Simulated scan of single mutants.
Amino acid sequence: MSREHQRGVDVTVDLVILTIRDGELNVLLVERGNEPYRGRQALPGGYLRPGETLEHAARRELEEETGLDAERLHLEQLRAYSEPDRDPRGRVITVAFLALGPDLPIPKAGTDASDAIWVPVSSIVTEPGSLAFDHPTILRDALEQARSQLEYTTVATAFCPEPFTVSDLRKVYETVWGLTLDPSNFRRKVTRADRFLEATGERRSAEPGRPATLYRRGPARLLHPPLLREGRTARTQTTPSPSAKKSD
C-alpha cells in the first residue's frame, strides 16, 4: 500500500448560500476561527462525519456555522473539487452545495467561525484572492449554476417570499443575471410558461399604477419554454446523432 493510501482522504462539504439583500446578490461568508487561513473569509462548511450523507452534512454545517434553518432554503449539490493541493492540511475532497433563499436574516457564527456575514457577490468577484482555499473557484461555479438554473428551472421563486408579483420575480432575474429585462416581454414569458406561476386571486395595491396580481410558485420544476439570457440558445435534452449534427 502506498503512502498516499495510508494517509487516506478526508471529505468535506462547502456551502454557497445566495440571497438578495437590498437589491444585490449576496453570498454568506464566515471568518475562519481556526488554521489554516485563520482570520480569512471562506464559504461555510466542514468535515463529513461517520454515518452522514453529504446532504445531511451540508444541512448540519449550515445550521451549526450560520444558525440558518436549512428548511427555508433550496439546497442542491453543485459538484466535487479534488485538486490534490486544494487544502494545506492534506488530501481533502470537498463537495459543494448551492443554497438559495429569500432575503435571509443576518446569520450567527457557529463553532468554527468567528463571524458570519452577507457580502455582495460583486465585491468578491472583483477580489477573488480574499477567499480561503479554492473557494473563489467554487463561488464562480455556483454563480454560473444559479444563473443557468434560472434559465431552465423554476428555482428563481426560491428568492421570492410568497406571495410575489411578476415585478418581484423580474428583479430576481435582473439581479442574478446582471441584466436589465424588458418588463412586458418578461411578463409575457413567465405567465405563459407551463405551471411556473399560480395566481393567488389577490392583488397588491401599494405599487404605483394599477394593483399588481400576486402569485405563488406553481408545481413545475422545469421551465417550459426556457427563459434564456440574451444571446444564448436553448440546450437540447438529448444528444443528436452524427447525421443530425450535419443538418441545418
Rank of each mutant, 00 (worst) to 15 (best):
R89F: 12
N34K: 15
R59I: 05
P102W: 05
S122E: 03
T94N: 15
L139P: 08
A57S: 11
S122W: 00
R140I: 02
T137Q: 14
A80F: 04
P44Y: 10
V92E: 12
L62R: 04
E127Q: 07
T53E: 06
D103N: 14
A116D: 11
G46K: 07
P136G: 02
A132C: 09
L143Q: 05
A132H: 11
V121E: 06
E61A: 13
T137Y: 07
L98S: 09
L131G: 06
E61R: 13
S130L: 12
I93V: 15
L78D: 11
H135I: 00
L43T: 10
P128E: 10
E65C: 02
T126H: 01
E144T: 09
R59H: 12
E31R: 15
R40W: 12
L28N: 06
H135A: 05
R91F: 14
V125C: 00
H135N: 09
L143E: 04
E61P: 04
S130T: 15
D103C: 10
S82M: 07
R32V: 05
K108R: 15
L73P: 00
S114H: 01
D85M: 09
R89M: 12
G33I: 06
P120G: 08
Y81N: 04
P105T: 07
I138C: 01
S114C: 05
I93E: 15
P120C: 11
V95L: 03
D87L: 13
R72Y: 00
V121A: 06
S114P: 01
V95Y: 02
G67E: 07
E63N: 11
T126Q: 02
A96I: 02
G51C: 09
K108D: 13
